[in-house]
Design a protein around this nucleic acid. Structure first.
Lengths: 275, 275
DNA sequence: CTAATAGTGTCTATTAGACAGTATGTT
DNA sequence: AACATACTGTCTAATAGACACTATTAG
C-alpha cells in the first residue's frame, strides 16, 4: 500500500507489525557503610555497600537480586528506573546513570527480556527514610586475581559470593568480556550488572565528580580518601591524593574533633572547579 | 496462586502478563576516507566518514538515517546489530560495541520503541564488497564551539547538518546532556547516536586499541597520526604522538615510496603490548 | 607521653609539550 | 635544488610516586 504522506502512513500503521517483547530495568545502588572502630583512636572502617532485594516470587524465589522491574510504557527509561527504586526500596532523588543493556537469550527463564541497567549512588547515612524490609544493604568486597574477580557480599546474616572471569579484548568488541563462572547467590545475570557498575565507578572517579554523591555534605579528607581507596581497590598516598582532589573541594571553618588525634578540617564539594 | 517449584511456576507463566514493546538496534559505523591530493608531494587528506542509509518508507521517508531495524527475538542484541548491518549495507565481520540505549517516549512517531545503539568501526578501503546502493558514505566534520557541537555530513551530492547542545553536568546523572537544537537532515534521534559514538571513540582511543580497526593492515605513522587527529579533532606533535603509539605498533621491512619526500616505514598493529 | 591520624615539604621519576634539527625521494 | 614529509634529539613543564617530617589531640 502506498501512502501519500507521513500522517496518512501513521494513521494506518499496525503497531503489532513487529514482534514485541518485555523490557526491565535493574538498578545497582552503591553506598558506603561505616563500622565503628573498637579503638577510640582509629578511624571508622568504611566498606563498599550495595542494596539487594529479596525476591518474594518465582522465578528465583527467596534469592537476593538487584531492585528491578518491568518497563512502564508511559515512562522514559531513567524515570522508570527511579520509579522502581522508590517502589522496591523507598529510595528516591539520587544520582543515577545508565550502565549497559543486557539482552542474552536466556537471561530470564520466563520469556525473552531485555534489561537496561542503571547505577545509582548515595550516601546512605543521608537517607531520611528507612529502606523497605525486603531490601537490605550488603557490604561488598572485591578480590581480583589475574583474570578472576570474586565478589563477596555480607549483610551480617547472610554471605553471598560469585566469581566472574574478566577477559581483556584487544580489537574485537568491547574492552572486557565478563563471564560468570560461579554464582549460587544472586538471581538472573545480576552479578554482571554489579561488576559493570563497579568498573564504571572505578573509571569515572578519575574524570568526574560522581564520588561526591556518596559523601555527606561535610567530610574530612581522610574519609574521602577512604572512599577513593574502596572504589579504586588500592591504597593511596596522602600528598598525591590531596593534589588530585584539591580543585574539587573547599575548606569549611569546621573541624572534626574527638578522634584521639589531630582534628581534621571538614571540607565540602566545590562544583565546576575543573574548567 | 501458589506454586510449589520454579518449574511449576514457569509452566503456568503468562508471557503477556506485562505490556510489551518493540526494540530496535541502530548502528553508527565510522571509517576514514582518502582524498587524493592535487599536489604530488602532499599526503592524501583524510576525512572522518559515516555510513548512512536512505529511508524508502515512512516514517521519515526519503531522509537519511543510520542503518537500523527491529530486534529479532531469536537473536542476541549484538548479533541482531550485525545482522541488520549486513542486511542494510552489505557490511559484515567488523568491530562493534554497544553505545547507549535510547528510550524517549516519542523517538518514533509510530509507537513506543526503545533503541539500543551500537558503534562499528572499519577501514572501508578493506571492504571487499560494495555497499548497497541505498547506503552511502558521508564525510563528517565536527565543529565544536563552547557548548554547541555542529556536525556536517557530505556525500558529494547532498549536505546534511545538525547542531547539538552539550552540557556538562557535575553531580546529576550522566556526565553530559545532549540536546538536539537543530536538525532538518537526519531521521529519528540519530544525531544523538552519532554524537554519542564520536565521544565514545574520542575517549576510547586514549586507553584502548580500537583505532586499528579503522586502519589497513599496513600503514605509515603519518597516516595513523592523521586518523588520531581526525578523531581527537586537534593537531598532534610528532614526538609526542610517536611516544604514545610506540608500544602498539611494530615496524615492517616495507617502505612506502612515491611521495616526493622521504619514504615512510610501514608499520603494523602489535597486539597485547600494553601489559 | 603515646598512638593514631592530619597535613606539608621536597626530592625524584615519569610523562607531556614544544621546538629545532637532520634525513630523503620526487619533480 | 626545493618541497614536503619522515624521523630524532633534547630542553622544559607538568604530573605522579615516594618518603620524611611536623602538628595535634584523647586518653
Amino acid at each position: 500500500m502506498e501512502y501519500k504522506s507521513e500522517s496518512e502512513f501513521l494513521a494506518h500503521y499496525d503497531k503489532n507489525a513487529y514482534e514485541k517483547l518485555s523490557m526491565t530495568t535493574d538498578i545497582v545502588i552503591f553506598s558506603v557503610s561505616n563500622k565503628k572502630s573498637d579503638n577510640y583512636r582509629k578511624l571508622n572502617k568504611k566498606y563498599f555497600s550495595v542494596l539487594l532485594v529479596k525476591r518474594k516470587n518465582y522465578p528465583f524465589k527467596d534469592m537476593w537480586c538487584l531492585p528491578g522491574g518491568f518497563l512502564d510504557l508511559n515512562l522514559e527509561l531513567e524515570e522508570n528506573a527511579r520509579n522502581i527504586l522508590k517502589r522496591e526500596t523507598n529510595i528516591q532523588d539520587i544520582y543515577i546513570e545508565q550502565l549497559y543493556t543486557f539482552g542474552g537469550l536466556n537471561r530470564d527463564p520466563r520469556l525473552r527480556v531485555v534489561a537496561t541497567s542503571y547505577m545509582a549512588l548515595i550516601d546512605k547515612e543521608r537517607l531520611n527514610q528507612e529502606v523497605y524490609e525486603n531490601a537490605d544493604w550488603f557490604d561488598l568486597f572485591v578480590n581480583e586475581q589475574n583474570d578472576i574477580v570474586e565478589i563477596s557480599l555480607d549483610n551480617g546474616k547472610e554471605k553471598l559470593s560469585f566469581k566472574i572471569r574478566k577477559t581483556l579484548k584487544e580489537l574485537t568488541t568491547d574492552r572486557y568480556k565478563f563471564e560468570v563462572i560461579e554464582n549460587k547467590s544472586l538471581a538472573f545475570d545480576h552479578p554482571l550488572i554489579i561488576l559493570t557498575g563497579l568498573e564504571r565507578l572505578k573509571n569515572k572517579i578519575e574524570y568526574t565528580d560522581i564520588v561526591f554523591n556518596m559523601m555527606p555534605p561535610l567530610f574530612t579528607l581522610g574519609e574521602l580518601k577512604q572512599v577513593y581507596e574502596i572504589i579504586l581497590n588500592k591504597k593511596l598516598l596522602d600528598p598525591a591524593f590531596r593534589r588530585i582532589i584539591a580543585t574539587k573541594v573547599e575548606k569549611t571553618d569546621e573541624l572534626q574533633t574527638g578522634g584521639g588525634h589531630r582534628p581534621s578540617v571538614l571540607y565540602r564539594y566545590k562544583a565546576n572547579a575543573n574548567k
